[in-house]
Amino acid sequence: MNPTAGRPVVFIHGLWLHPTSWNPWVELFRERGYAPVAPGWPGVAASVEQSRSDPDSIADQGIDDVVAHYARIIDGLTEPPVLVGHSFGGMIAEKLLGQDRAAAAVAIDAAQIKGVLPVPLSSLRATLPVFRNPANRHRAVSLTPEQFRFAFGNAVSAEESAGLHARWTIPAPGKPLFEAAAANFSPHSPAGVDTGNAGRGPLLLVMGGRDHTVPEAITKATLKQYRGSGAVTDLIEFADRGHSLTIDSGWRAVADAALSWLAEQGL
Rank of each mutant, 00 (worst) to 15 (best):
T127Y: 13
H86W: 13
L117D: 13
P190Q: 09
E146K: 03
K220M: 11
S229H: 06
E160K: 02
V37D: 01
V67T: 14
A46R: 15
D75V: 06
V82G: 01
A151Q: 08
F185A: 14
I92Q: 07
A162M: 04
R32C: 02
G14K: 00
L262K: 00
D75I: 07
T78D: 09
W25R: 00
D234T: 03
G85W: 08
K220F: 05
R241K: 12
I170K: 00
Y70G: 02
A181G: 07
F150W: 06
S57K: 05
D64F: 09
R7M: 03
W22I: 09
H138W: 09
A198E: 15
P81V: 09
Q147F: 01
R241P: 02
A110C: 08
H188S: 15
T20N: 12
V44H: 05
N2Y: 03
S123C: 06
L117M: 12
P19Q: 15
S51M: 05
G163N: 12
G196E: 11
T222M: 11
F185L: 15
Q225D: 01
G85C: 06
L128Q: 09
P190N: 10
R72D: 14
I92H: 07
W22R: 02
N133G: 03
H212S: 08
P118W: 02
N154G: 13
T233D: 06
P190H: 05
A180G: 09
K114C: 10
A35W: 08
S122R: 05
R149L: 08
D75P: 03
W261M: 04
D211A: 01
K114E: 13
V106T: 11
K220C: 10
F148M: 08
S189A: 13
V141N: 12
F11L: 07
R137M: 11
A166H: 01
E79Q: 06
N2D: 15
R52G: 12
S186Q: 15
R200I: 11
H243D: 09
P36F: 10
L28G: 02
G230A: 04
K175L: 15
T219R: 00
A103I: 09
A111S: 15
G76E: 10
H188A: 15
